[in-house]
Amino acid sequence: MTGWLGAWLLLCAAGVLVTLGAALWRVWRGPARADRMMAAQLVGTGGVAVLMLLAPAQGWAALDVALVLAILAALAAVGFVKASTPDGAGDPEEADAPHDPPLDPPLDLATDSARSDRDVA
């Protein structure tokens, strides 16, 4: 597809890539592990969006890649959750699983960065 519509689709795809750059910044900063993993999941979802925008402009075969990415990107999140259980094979929802400490005292945005030293896996 040539012309203005193709250029517009590619421009939108570039815009999504810019937001993925912001996600990579979040992976760098953290501070918690869940922050980094959620940002990586955003890269996966954003990648699906980029491919769907590329498909009409470049070729419909990109939708196949988008399908595979959409199905498998969550696999890393499952692996992360599993690896952070005490024996590496559990489920955080199980009755005896350790839970995040409750937010007590209430969340104070000015000192939120101090939470990183209580950070759990």
Binding site: L20, A40, V43, G44, G47, V50, L51, L54, Q58, G59, A61, A62, D64, V65, V68, L69, L72, A73, L75, A76, V78, G79
Partner: peptide, 30 residues
């Protein structure tokens, strides 16, 4: 994940499929 996008841009959709499944999925779990 980003390299899989690059493969699509290089016209190598077969490679992009393999990279999406392996690089984004299996390698992460491993």
């Amino acid at each position: 994940l980003l390299v899989a996008l690059g493969w699509v841009r290089l016209g190598a959709v077969n490679v992009a499929l393999a990279e999406a499944a392996i690089g984004a999925g299996l390698t992460g779990v491993l």
